[in-house]
Design a protein around this nucleic acid. Structure first.
Lengths: 199, 199
DNA sequence: TAATAAGCTGTCATAATTGACAATTAAATA
DNA sequence: TATTTAATTGTCAATTATGACAGCTTATTA
């Protein structure tokens, strides 16, 4: 008996709000009051459901990394079917669309990740997590491209992976300047030029 | 008569300290106390010499943008002499060395600029400045490359400029992860692959 | 050495941020 | 309806960050 718990729902709402705040104000700039307002709750409720600030940050990190993994795995899962066509071009279009189309773009996500990487500077535990996150990202991409462009050297594959990821990150990390529309095309074209060097 | 002023010297010291703090803790995370400690001064002296927080931020922005311009102009000034050799390869090496050599790398600078861009989100005046800063950067680079690779389309030039700048930014913005040594070579190689597409 | 201009120190008030918890209200079931 | 469980509200104390300024010290020069 007793009243039903809203813990899951509220926790979702709060972490969502925190996520949006971090994208706008950064990790340090996101006060509990802001987060609570963004979630439409009282600050005391935030504390009630997710604990103190450190706990809140920990949970946000877990959430972001989990979501990131899920998205990335969804991306990877599609690769084999794209490759059935045995067409390098189809693969290239698939990557470019996933990383640079306006449709799939998610500036908030990049800004949050960027904030976490920045904070990794004085948070060793977080640093380790973000290191692994980044390495998996680049390694996977290099590995996939190694299968599509099998005659290429490790060096070229690593370079192109890193280059594409850099362009991808950079485009959205510039979004606070509100010039994204100016740079999306060049970004995508640059990524294409880069990956085409593997053909 | 009267005691000689240390305003210039102290202002330098304070802004230098602020700069280092921003690279480590971000703009929001850099409290006046931190800055004062970093400069080896009392907080009240910081206030005495550079005024309140807003004034401090304004002066940092001016300082960063001025220094950035000077460095960039120094870079540009060398270009004609490099181009006297009428060698595209010499130009390519010049760019790669300037942007990706360990020697010239300056992670602090990139982290500060990144912080300013992030803060541009809720500071219209700063946004305008950073927009201009970025646009000049990309435009100049595109223009130079247009002279070196004169047969190329505007589209390609813009793309390669943006791509190289992205890789340059991204490399150092990852520096809080302490994996810079792993990614410098791929970054430089990617930039080379990209710019080689113009040949 | 006296006057002056500036450096420097310390302290106080205020606001913002966070942590903690008591008290109340609401929804479920026996 | 009484009980139980949890949501929700409100408030207070502690800490931190900032702004403001009075007062003392030091260096320079007339």
């Amino acid at each position: 008996m007793g009243r039903p718990s809203k813990k899951e729902q509220r926790t979702e709402e709060i972490l969502d709000a925190f996520y949006r705040c971090v994208a706008r104000y950064g990790l340090e700039g996101s006060t509990l009051e802001f987060i609570a307002n963004e979630a439409g709750l009282k600050r005391s409720l935030v504390r009630h459901y997710v604990g103190n600030r450190d706990s809140l940050v920990d949970q946000l990190v877990e959430r972001v990394l989990t979501h990131s993994s899920l998205h990335w795995e969804a991306f990877l899962a599609e690769v084999p079917s794209v490759m059935e066509q045995h067409s390098q071009d189809a693969f290239i279009e698939y990557i470019l669309e996933a990383l640079f189309s306006e449709q799939h773009s998610d500036a908030e996500y990049i800004l949050v990740v960027e904030s976490l990487i920045f904070s990794a500077n004085h948070n060793p535990a977080l640093r380790k997590k973000m290191q692994q996150w980044l390495q998996r990202f680049t390694d996977d991409l290099g590995h996939i491209m190694g299968e599509v462009f099998s005659d290429k050297t490790e060096q070229d594959l690593k370079a192109v992976s890193f280059g594409i990821i850099s362009i991808y990150f950079n485009l959205d990390s510039l979004s606070p300047l509100g010039m994204n529309h100016l740079y999306r095309k060049p970004a995508r074209h640059a990524a294409r030029l880069l990956i085409d060097t593997l053909k």
